[in-house]
Amino acid sequence: MWDQVGQTLNESTVRVVSRIASLLPGILALAIAIIVAALIAWLVATILRRILRAIDFDERLESWGVHGVAEWSPSHSATVLVARVAWWGILLLGFVLGLGAFDATLSSQLAFNIFAWVPRLVVSVVVILIGAVVGRYLARHVLLEAVNMNLQYARVLSAGVRWMIMTLAVTMALDHLQIAPGIIHLAFGILFGGIVLALSLAVGLGSKELVRSSLERESEKPFVEIEEPFRHL
């Protein structure tokens, strides 16, 4: 009996070792693919960065009115953002290609699934990124406008705008990934509606006194306006 157990264990060990041995070339190939991809990615990112700096890409983006990208980017530079996206994109491609070195059927199926899913994932990530950039830009814009209009609830307005845009972006991304679409639609309706209702209540209740006092001011307004003593120009 002990002989049989020993034999079975030996066979199992041989099978495991041979499986590992069969995987080793694949792992090596994957590592080489990642290293080569990293080198190419570094080269492409460096060239991209130099070209974009040479043409003053950040300044041009600013002059075209695209402001949010630079703010969100690392080092506040859209050039660095583009270079990093290229770097990671090429590295990811190298990883997926490296998977092809493993067992043909399994890895092909895996690679196929990944390749089929990657575009959706990329689009979803891009949607969320755009949502974050636009949300941050608009929230800041609303905050500044509200403060400069002397509105007491400026931060509430700003946060509301930000969360509305982020909610919209995340919902769009999840819907695109086909993750529980029914729940997503329902949740989006509730969340978005809730935010709008909360904002309306906040603004409505907050400005009740303001509206009343402005109406009173209007009705009591004298015929001759007192000139503001401060002239800024």
Binding site: D58, E62, H67, G68, E71, H76, R140, H141, L144, E145
Partner: peptide, 13 residues
């Protein structure tokens, strides 16, 4: 360009 220039200049008001 610590932040968007338009926002920066509005923040000084």
């Amino acid at each position: 360009r610590s932040i968007n220039r338009d926002h920066l200049l509005r923040a000084i008001t």
